[in-house]
Write a protein that binds this DNA or RNA. Structure first.
Lengths: 470, 470, 470
DNA sequence: AGCGTTCTAGAATATTCGGGC
DNA sequence: TGCCCGAATATTCTAGAACGC
């Protein structure tokens, strides 16, 4: 039955068939008429149809498929190891009878239908890795006899008849609500990196390619689903940050980068680095409920809080005492509140810290007042950049609120300390100690949240290109 | 069709009907015969059932529902504006005819059934926020005449007949695969914060509550889907910590805070801060098997282990050698064992470390002995605080066990090192180096696990209120 | 009745029949007519079904199986001595008549059925270890004639008819509430390490595999219940690491451990510690797409990136400037690319760093080239370990790629810096400073990702034993 | 200690809508 | 306009935690 197809997949996955090396066929019985015609060759070079028989009994049921619901033996069941994945470390794709995704009806009609043929699995092997359901069904669809609608050829997926595909094939391979099913298909295609290269237009014949796909169709099974929010988010943020950075009048780079670093030697990076923060790790959603207002994510709020904490400990370790603004803006109160301080949005340019800056940061606003102020700002503050009266302080507005805060916090690590150290007549050694400890702590803090301090600007450009092409 | 019901929802969402203020009805047509009988009152105080006639006719149909699969027009289709949400800024809750989500079978039977009425939007209001599909369908299910299976009463969802619900209702309201559909329902319930309070297992009648639900059923529509169990966990922990902190008699603050800090200057925080640790980040479950005994979670155990590791590396970096107690309590052995050392619960007051403290920490208890001791403590130690004979050491008892351990570990960072440094005739510089490295490492470690050093107590109270209202 | 079956199991468990050595049969009486036809061979090499002549006859019987629900005497009762275990030191697997656990669900038919024969213990052997009830019943269910519903073949459990299984089999083998009974089954399956590899949802046919299961069905009886995600994950990783470490030719331990530590004093650990990294915390999936290639997870990639970042900041803090290889391998470019540098897989042995190592690390490969190289490696690199020409550099191949990289990165913290410091004529103090900051940062970084630096090897052995017994 | 049962949560993929370019 | 992607929810599998025995 379907076991041939599956065992074929298993052999491929086992490595017995080197992808792209051995010309081999993936025989798979036709689901409708039962004439098991192997449709798609898994060869690297040829695409030969094979032959097979058997299946006639199930033919009738699949003529009008899924009327009763489930039991028809047309589609393949697959091995999904971890969530939504097919296969696993030591398991293999196994064949079954009923269409797994057909007919989600409630009645247990399965028993009335043709019995499932999971036992028809002749392969005991285990696929070496899980395969997302989509890729499996896609491969299945391509290896079934669906040449009328879709075809795999020359490492490209040709969709000959999108309406027919949507009407006749998609419901059999994918679970959906029958609404905009082709759109959903395309979203999944995007997730797995397929790009439409031909057939612009609604339901016109089109074709898709994937940079990770070889002519061997089994290569599709190795494509990795795109993760949310890593590279693309980074790219977007970088572009955002660049826009922000470029819009700053005084383009003279001010030190930021890793705290504790720049005061002893040349900075490893500059203010342009504001565009070099990139979020990696698990998905970090960007939500902007109010237009123009950047609502920091929880993770970012944590970062901010931890930065303040790092201030505290680092400053204390260096014998500098607590900076005022840290004392006045306890992180916990802000943890779930959004923006951090009344000074939010102001980017300090170290090196020429205004004398009253420390006090300015150490506003006497109560937390309640701060919260209220934040709410008001979220509503009323315009997006435009306004320059503060102090030439060294730029009020970025609420638009840049949160990102700017990160910058502020980092840049404040050192200069504020320097100022305070000068005021307190502390030894340079103590200040240096502060820098060292802060370097370790802040770097780790950023990293622990998946925030990466990026390369220098020249490299960043390259990075952007990479991301753009990725 | 259902537009009356939906427009009613829209009015509520618009705020025209203040939830819990105006007693109003949610007219909704009977699904079968279409007679718009108002079923459930949306009043705040009363929950009067409407004149629900017309159920006998539908009884017959539900005897064998969805034999053919899909087409019955009982369930509501909706317009989901933003993803999976119902209503929102620019879209409205709309009523439709055929059940879009009933039986998503492979055959496009939907087209044969009653045509979907997505365009049948008669309401022009804009709900102030989108409603997740689940909440909408849940509310719909509760306001429909499904008293036989499920009921909304006293701000609680009563499931009278789980099997019947799964068999007869769920397929109509939710798109599912009929396989473990009740489980899926429960997953969604969890996502939205519902908790089962009665009816353990057995397909027995059960009930769910939600802390954000008022008696007004429309309050369900305002429940927010869980993101990652952060704020709620933080709230719970903070309240726990407060309870703990409040039970401490001597409120006089002792230094704790960031390691490496207090030996050079005034403490940045005090013992009251023991109640200011809060967990943020991914969910950190709290388990207390014995009343009054805080059983450290796995994550917290990891923290402790990492603290020991930080001890090790920091001490080594400072040339101090490994402190004895670290050697005697290797972290891995304790990783799954619970509390850390025989000295648990004792908070060291730096500056006047007892002479035997280092040895006391370096107990020769085997791990087995320690475990046994821990178990005994979990049973027998009272919750009250007892003051040690040493005026500088407070035995917090096992009540505060784990939190105190964190404190101990941190506070021990320095003084123990000082003692050992004195014993070893190490230079003050080496000791200072230790403190510096430890400060960076430990601070980062805490932050990396989502542990936050919180604000002072007064501010913490405010935070609690905030969280309580959130 | 079933006592023969049970005594057979007992013999196997006693060790009289070494699993996997002697081909033996598990005679088990046909459930209906009681004719003890050996059905499943317990052979190690072959998994031949016995002379299943009576298959057709039983087929008829299973046409209407369990009409009354429970009462047939086919299933085994058992005596569970200690909680939930079957067999063990003091108890034995016992055979009985009626299904004690049959259908606790809706109808209490059990009482009407044949009385349970728990006392019917006819076997005198003592299994060397207790068998959890679940595994026993599962094995029993698989060796009974339930091919219609469930089948054991090729070290895989095939569930052909989940609804039928839930309805007809589960009540006979497991005490359950019939409510979400399949879900409970699956929870138990998870506990014992079974993973669903086929049949996503929908009461569709599915199959399970278990990494500890051999083709010999009796291997199921030796599966250990999972303790928690930590230890099992740690155990898996540790075994992986051990495999890795053991495969290294020169077993002479080289320092690794915490960076910045070993250059001043005796190392707290050695290269053997490579096997002591253990992942705790949230799940860290292990995926190797191509056999022999370790595909780093996103989390691990982040670790690597953060390590590079730590290099950068630490080096800068120490006034060392950026190490070349960090500049040449910007993390972001590698974040989603898999392995890190062209030097991947090479483990640097500190203390005798090759002169050109820094340059070697600072290869001039462009990122594109690196990527291409990585892809090629994933396909073509053999698994065998090859020793580099430099006696101090071991090329672990791609097999150990990622883990080795962690080691490399750590070990490179110091020696590479030393080399560079020497080249740059930097002061020892600056180098020392680097070490200190790096110690704090790297330690925290590892901890933040749940990576633990383990104890020394001797202790590790103990840990392994603990994990093994756990 | 270990297992079974249940409730809850984590993680990954799937589905769907909207928006940017 | 149409392709691509962000974001949120939905679905499924797996695992953590608590409780009872």
């Amino acid at each position: 039955m379907d076991s041939d197809y599956v065992s074929q997949l298993n052999r491929i996955l086992d490595g017995n068939i080197e992808p792209g090396q051995v010309s081999q066929t993936l025989p798979y019985p036709n689901e409708i008429n039962g004439s098991s015609t192997s449709v798609v060759s898994v060869s690297a070079s040829t695409h030969s149809l094979g032959t097979s028989s058997s299946r006639s009994s199930s033919a009738a049921s699949s003529q009008l498929p899924r009327q009763g619901g489930v039991g028809d033996s047309s589609a393949v069941t697959f091995s999904s190891s971890t969530n939504g994945l097919i296969g696993g470390e030591k398991t293999h794709v196994t064949a079954g009878g009923a269409a797994t995704y057909g007919a989600t009806g409630q009645a247990p009609i399965t028993e009335d239908a043709a019995p499932s043929k999971l036992a028809d699995c002749k392969t005991g092997q285990t696929p070496p890795h899980p395969v997302p359901e989509f890729l499996f069904q896609l491969t299945k669809m391509l290896t079934d006899d669906n040449l009328e609608y879709i075809e795999w050829k020359k490492a490209t997926i040709f969709v000959h008849d999108p309406p027919g595909l949507e009407k006749n094939l998609l419901p059999r391979y994918f679970r959906h609500s029958n609404y905009s099913s082709f759109v959903r298909l395309q979203r999944q295609m995007n997730y797995f990196g397929f790009r439409k290269i031909a057939g612009k237009g609604k339901m016109a014949p089109c074709s898709y390619v994937n940079e990770h796909a070889k002519e061997d169709i089994s290569s599709l099974l190795y494509i990795k689903r795109k993760k949310s929010g890593v590279s693309s988010t980074a790219a977007r943020l970088i572009s955002q940050q660049n826009r922000l950075a470029n819009s700053i009048p005084g383009a003279k780079p001010a030190v930021m980068s890793v705290p504790g670093v720049m005061m002893q030697q040349a900075p490893v990076s500059n203010f342009g680095n504001i565009s070099q923060f990139a979020l990696s790790g698990s998905s970090i959603p960007i939500s902007h409920q109010m237009p123009g207002v950047y609502q920091p994510t929880l993770q970012e709020q944590i970062i901010l809080a931890q930065l303040q904490q790092a201030h505290t400990s680092a400053a204390s370790a260096a014998g500098l005492g607590l900076p005022q603004y840290v004392q006045c803006a306890p992180m916990m109160a802000n943890l779930n509140q959004g923006l951090l301080t009344a000074d939010q949005g102001q980017v300090l340019y170290p090196g020429s810290l205004p004398e009253n800056k420390t006090n300015s940061l150490a506003t006497t606003l109560s937390i309640q007042q701060q919260q209220q102020q934040q709410q008001e700002q979220q509503v009323s503050v315009p997006q435009s950049m306004v320059r503060n009266s102090d030439p060294n302080v730029f009020d970025l507005g609420v638009v840049s609120s949160e990102r700017a805060l990160l910058t502020q916090q980092i840049s404040a690590f050192n200069p504020a300390m320097q100022v305070q150290a000068a005021n307190d007549n502390l030894s340079p050694q103590a200040t240096a100690n502060y820098g060292q400890v802060a370097a370790g702590a802040a770097s780790a803090l950023y990293g622990s949240q998946g925030l990466q301090l990026g390369p220098a600007r020249s490299q960043q450009q390259t990075l952007e290109e990479i991301l753009r092409n990725a």
